[in-house]
C-alpha cells in the first residue's frame, strides 16, 4: 500500500503501540476462532487456521492465547461471528475497504458508518470500491533476513 510504512511510523511515534498491541491480540484470536470454526479445528488440515496461527505466532502471541482461541470455536455457547466487508470513500475521494468480524452486524455497521461520517467520508455499496483493488497474497519478512535473501 502506498504510504503504508510511513503511516505505520506515525502510529508508532504517537506512542499508541501498547494499546494497539492488546487490540492486535484480540483481533488475531478472533481470526483464529473464526478460522477454526470454518473447517477442522486442526491447523494441519485447515489452511486458513494455519495462516491465522502462524500470524499470531509472528506477532509473539502466547501459545495459551492461541490454544484458547482454537478451543473457543468448539464451545457451544460461543459467539457467532460473521465476516462483513464495508466499502466507501474517505476525504479526497480515497477508496477505503473495511473488513470486520462481528457478532452484531447492526452495531458494527452503525459504528463504521458514523466513523466515516465524522471523518469526511461516506460509506458506499458493497463492490463500490473493491473493483479498484486486487485480492492477492502478502508475505512480510522483517529486515534482518535481508542478507539471506539477496
Amino acid at each position: 500500500m502506498a504510504g503504508h510504512s510511513k503511516f505505520k511510523n506515525i502510529m508508532h511515534r504517537k506512542g499508541r503501540q501498547d494499546g494497539l498491541r492488546s487490540k492486535l491480540f484480540s483481533k488475531l484470536s478472533k481470526e483464529i476462532t473464526v478460522a477454526a470454526k470454518s473447517g477442522m479445528p486442526d491447523p494441519a488440515m485447515n489452511s486458513r487456521l494455519r495462516l491465522a496461527v502462524q500470524n499470531a505466532k509472528g506477532q509473539s502471541m502466547p501459545k495459551d492465547n492461541i490454544d484458547r482461541a482454537i478451543n473457543k470455536a468448539s464451545a457451544t455457547d460461543g459467539d457467532e461471528y460473521q465476516e462483513v466487508r464495508y466499502e466507501g470513500y474517505g476525504p479526497g475521494g480515497v477508496a477505503v475497504i473495511v473488513e470486520a468480524l462481528t457478532d452484531n452486524r447492526n452495531r458494527t455497521a452503525s459504528n463504521v458508518r458514523s466513523t466515516f461520517g465524522k471523518n469526511g467520508g461516506t460509506l458506499g455499496e458493497t463492490n463500490s470500491v473493491s473493483f479498484m483493488f486486487d485480492r492477492i497474497g502478502e508475505i512480510i519478512y522483517p529486515l534482518k533476513l535481508a542478507m539471506l535473501m539477496m
Partner: peptide, 9 residues
C-alpha cells in the same frame, strides 16, 4: 469488530 482496513491513498 474491525479486522483490516485497506486504502489507496
Amino acid at each position: 469488530d474491525v479486522q483490516n482496513v485497506y486504502s489507496n491513498f
